[in-house]
């Protein structure tokens, strides 16, 4: 019974946020959403979700904390190094044939994987003709991504992943250490455009040669996943590349038959029609 009541309270909360602020979480996958809302409830020191609803609707600062709590994913540079290796070996040769490459990194979170891609493209000598559009629904996270500052203690792990991903330099060349932080080299940023985009509510904004959306769709239910696959299909040029997370697939996409796998295990696909 408690769970039924909780579900009702969550539905009312999400509906309220959508109607008042326009942020649409109504089609987020329920299990993660419930956990995250419960954590926010504990952080806000409130007994009921209905109390949280009142606070969010009347206090925009609380909304900001909620948005952060609901949307932040914890990833790393070169997460799944074999993906980046496959991208280097199978996708980069295709990209070399274009005079100009537009890449959309949808749901870039704090930017770790965007900079990983920038490093990869730089090492392959094609970064100059690439433009990466890195988007996320959350403004705070985007600012963190734009800052390109990460805890220094993570660099050892990132270095290992970088090497497994086929890195060609010394990873330490890509950052400067200062006050316990690693500040990424400025040249990595030069062709990245950070902007806010909400996959649930915003429309297509360009045509791309590559769309990367890794471990974002896992947070959406089947309906919203379908919606986003429409958006991707519409935004991808003919023979464009779609890259999903390691445990995601096109199974829930209405366009499954429109793609062929390029690296099946790494979930890299090419749009055929």
């Amino acid at each position: 019974m408690k769970n039924d009541l909780e579900e009702i309270e969550i539905q009312l909360l999400l509906e309220g946020i959508y109607q008042y602020y326009g942020f649409d979480f109504r089609n987020y996958a329920r299990s993660s959403l419930h956990r995250r809302i419960r954590k926010i409830l504990a952080d806000e020191n409130l007994p009921y979700i209905s109390d949280l609803q009142a606070r969010i609707l009347h206090d925009p600062a609380c909304l900001q904390r909620f948005l952060l709590g609901i949307t932040v994913n914890v990833t790393s540079m070169f997460r799944d190094p074999s993906f980046f290796l496959a991208f280097r070996q199978r996708v980069v040769p295709l990209l070399r044939t274009y005079p100009y490459v537009r890449i959309w990194h949808a749901g870039c979170s704090q930017g770790q994987e965007v900079y990983s891609m920038a490093i990869l493209l730089q090492e392959e000598g094609i970064y100059d003709r690439c433009r990466i559009y890195a988007t996320d629904a959350n403004e705070t996270v985007l600012k963190q991504a734009e800052n390109a500052i990460y805890p220094l203690e993570l660099m050892q792990q990132y270095t290992q992943l970088y090497l497994q991903a086929g890195g060609k330099q010394s990873f330490s060349e890509y950052y400067t250490a200062a006050y316990g932080n690693a500040i990424l080299r400025h040249s990595l940023k030069q062709n990245i455009i950070f902007s806010q985009h909400n996959l649930a509510t915003d429309r297509s904004f360009n045509e791309f040669h590559v769309i990367l959306c890794r471990n974002v769709l896992i947070y959406f239910n089947a309906d919203l996943q379908k919606h986003v696959h429409y958006l991707f299909h519409e935004s991808l040029c003919m023979l464009g590349i779609l890259a999903l997370g390691r445990q995601e697939s096109l199974r829930l996409s209405p366009f499954q038959s429109h793609y062929e796998p390029i690296a099946n295990r790494e979930k890299i696909y090419r749009r055929l029609h």
């Binding site: 299990s31 993660s32 956990r35 997460r79 896992i218 947070y219 445990q247």
Partner: peptide, 21 residues
């Protein structure tokens, strides 16, 4: 459960997340 993902049960299906450890 795949490495580096949380595994969640969501009524009659599974869901995954990369929420913090």
């Amino acid at each position: 459960a795949p490495a580096d993902y949380h595994l969640l049960v969501e009524s009659h299906q599974f869901a995954l997340s990369i929420d913090e450890p």
